[in-house]
Design a protein around this nucleic acid. Structure first.
Lengths: 122, 122
DNA sequence: CTTTTCAATTTACGGCTGTAATCTTTCTGA
DNA sequence: TCAGAAAGATTACAGCCGTAAATTGAAAAG
């Protein structure tokens, strides 16, 4: 039920646009990786077996679409990190990056806005 | 140079207290895992070979202490997640948890405090 | 000095992952 | 209808990981 790093790059393509044929996935990944076509076929198959994508027949080929949502994936990954390293909470992570001076201006501005939003019940 | 999940539990013990003998590490992990002693010896050795811990002879045994700091480990793990999923920034992660209503009162209070601190140059 | 006994090191092994080649099936064009 | 091509499915294989047993080496005890 868990998705490996390589598999998640395939999911990225499908989250971005779907349904797609295997060939289209291969074309999209040619830009960001140097994987051969059979490699990507393997990854699609593993994702199928895991139930992370589904395939619908379209003539002689299949069209793939994600079953797992990107938001759910992101959440599972993030929660796992927070649980392991930050007592399951978000604030200690922010504190860590703040201590290391790794918050950008943009981050700080956005955090302010978020806190403001939350404050008036948004 | 990267530390696996099982290895990180061993590091946790050493970050908590060091130097420790292998036996002491085994004793500490007996509480949280059901690993056998040889398993933990293996993990200590792998960490040694990776340079994540060092060992100092003490009679017939060794005393282990971490070379990699917990803060550096936490940072590397967190940065990797942020890079993969949140465009390398902290704020989008906070936004994600906010959208999912996964920020505790405690989180929100602490975030407010952090932003306040940053604002007057702390 | 020899034997026993620990602690550490080496070896083991199945499963998952990254990476891919090969085989099989099924359209499609001749 | 038969051969060639295209797509998917199966098989491969080395490295890492979780988990641990077996071996070695050195210290302590007799």
């Amino acid at each position: 039920m868990s998705i490996s790093d390589a598999e998640s790059l395939v999911m990225d393509v499908l989250w971005n646009e779907h349904p797609l044929s295997a060939d289209e996935v291969v074309a999209a990944l040619a830009k960001s990786t140097d994987w051969q076509e059979p490699t990507i076929k393997t990854l699609l198959n593993r994702l199928l077996n895991k139930g992370a994508v589904e395939a619908e027949r379209d003539g002689r080929r299949y069209l793939y679409r994600p079953l797992l949502s990107r938001a759910d994936y992101v959440h599972a990954e993030s929660k796992s990190l927070l649980d392991r390293l930050f007592d399951g909470r978000v604030a200690p992570l922010v504190a860590h990056f703040s201590e290391r001076r790794k918050l950008s201006k943009k981050d700080i501005a956005e955090l302010k806005r978020l806190i403001g939003e939350i404050d008036n019940g948004a």
